[in-house]
């Protein structure tokens, strides 16, 4: 990947190591989310790990490197869309079964990846929401500069 901001961020050693570790952290977060109904973890823990992978990239390469690839507006929109989709899941349950947030997708076979009805879906929505939201909070708090005087 071409780096347009070589002077920002940390030293060459940190940047080289980050290239090996950041996708491992990201994929671990996704694993935690997708296996949320089978193993410890879930949408919230996985979302925080995904946000931490973005934070890792920001700390090593500087914030402009990340913002060039992932737009801030896109992050804001993704977070809001995920929040709407969570509520929409509840409304679809209300429409099909008559109860708000009722499981409308069936139970499935126990111990398999595609089971537990809408739980994996909600996990993915929560992951997107928490990951994007917490990264944006980090971005705003870390790049905030109080005015002089």
């Amino acid at each position: 990947m071409q780096n347009n901001f070589p002077n920002e961020g940390m030293s060459v050693i940190v940047k080289t190591i980050t290239r090996f570790t950041v996708w491992l952290i990201f994929l671990y977060g996704l694993y935690i989310v997708i296996h949320g109904h089978l193993s410890p973890g879930g949408g919230f823990a996985g979302g925080v790990i995904v946000a931490l992978s973005y934070v890792h990239l920001t700390l090593a390469y500087g914030k402009n490197f990340v913002l060039e690839r992932v737009d801030k507006f896109a992050m804001n929109s993704l977070e809001a869309i995920a929040a709407i989709l969570i509520v929409l899941t509840g409304i679809v349950g209300l429409y099909i079964t008559g109860y708000f947030f009722a499981n409308f997708m069936g139970v499935g076979k126990l111990y398999t990846l595609l089971s537990a009805g809408y739980i994996p879906m909600l996990n993915i929505f929560i992951c997107v929401k928490v990951g994007m939201g917490l990264y944006l909070v980090f971005y705003y708090l870390a790049s905030f500069k109080p005015k002089e005087g």
């Binding site: 109904h37 089971s115 537990a116 739980i119």
Partner: peptide, 11 residues
């Protein structure tokens, strides 16, 4: 049986 989730905390 009721939710199909192996992880009871997630259930």
């Amino acid at each position: 049986v009721e939710t199909g989730s192996q992880n009871i905390i997630t259930a």
